[in-house]
Simulated scan of single mutants.
Amino acid sequence: MSGKALLVTGGSRGIGAETARLAASRGWRVAVNYVSDQVSADAVVAEIEAGGGEAFAVQGDVGAEADVLAMFAAVDARFGRLDGLVNNAGIVDRKARVDEMSVARLERMMRVNIVGSFLCAREAVKRMSTRHGGQGGVIVNLSSAAARLGSPGWYVDYAASKGAIDTLTTGLALEVAGEGIRVCGVRPGIIATDIHASGGEPDRIEKVRAGLPMKREGRPEEIASAIVWLLSGEASYITGATLDVSGGR
């Protein structure tokens, strides 16, 4: 893996942070993207560097094209190449029914979760595709078990945005399969991260734990292990697939 460069969006906390740490331990040079929490992003970078790895933090809102372009330019300047992208950045909103959702909420959800992933994938393909003079690479998109379950009464908009990510994974994989790029997805289930609190439900895990098939939530490192495996040569014949890491949900 020596010299290979990876960008992890939303890499300052939760699944993104665990992915950045694990990838760095496997030899990836890692760009840790964050929107506003520079302290957490810098802490992830410091931990990677303390372990002998190479990383840097890069600010950017994936839902803003100018930020995405600046973020990829920073990766170009620092690493001079890109070999992997983890499309991890995403948001949820307050628990609501569809008949309670505002246009502003819907537009924000789709801009960050869908448009942001498309923009980052676009820029990654421009750098990695042999059609554009690249050397190939891997994109891993973060979906959710919600894409299959629909999340009724909680956030159908979030579930729908992740359904779009599943389609992006399938379509883009076929589009660039002959250009040296693999595109895969991971669908986490209920995972112990602060995304629940950001949606106004800090106790959501406690509410649903008894109904989970394994009677426990997943850990961020369990998702990171799947992501980093898909990035690796061990998954070299896998593209267009989305792996459920959802504890049976």
Rank of each mutant, 00 (worst) to 15 (best):
E107A: 13
S2E: 13
A73G: 14
V86L: 08
E18V: 06
A147E: 08
R187E: 15
V112T: 15
L174R: 14
S198R: 15
V115T: 14
S12Y: 02
E54K: 11
R131G: 13
N113W: 05
R97L: 15
G63E: 10
R97G: 13
R187M: 14
D244F: 02
A89S: 11
D99C: 09
S151M: 12
M109S: 12
D99S: 09
L149C: 02
G53Y: 07
D37Q: 11
A23S: 10
E100Q: 12
L142K: 13
A74I: 01
D42G: 05
R78M: 05
R26I: 04
R127V: 06
M101A: 14
I48M: 08
E222P: 13
E206Q: 10
G247A: 10
D244Q: 10
V44A: 07
V45G: 06
E54C: 07
L230N: 13
A235L: 12
V39N: 11
L85D: 05
T169A: 05
Y34F: 10
G199A: 03
D76Y: 00
Y237N: 09
I227A: 04
D93I: 05
V39W: 03
A224W: 08
R78A: 00
D76F: 00
A74C: 01
R148W: 06
T169G: 09
T239D: 00
F72W: 06
G136N: 01
A50E: 12
G52E: 03
A160L: 06
G84Q: 09
V86I: 10
I114A: 11
T193D: 12
D157S: 14
K207F: 02
G189Q: 11
V92R: 08
P152Y: 10
I114Q: 06
E221V: 13
E201S: 15
V39D: 13
A31L: 07
E206C: 03
A192Y: 02
E234R: 10
A226P: 04
G163E: 03
V156N: 09
A226T: 14
A50F: 04
E107Q: 13
H196A: 15
Y34G: 04
G60Q: 02
N113F: 05
E222M: 12
E217L: 03
L69V: 15
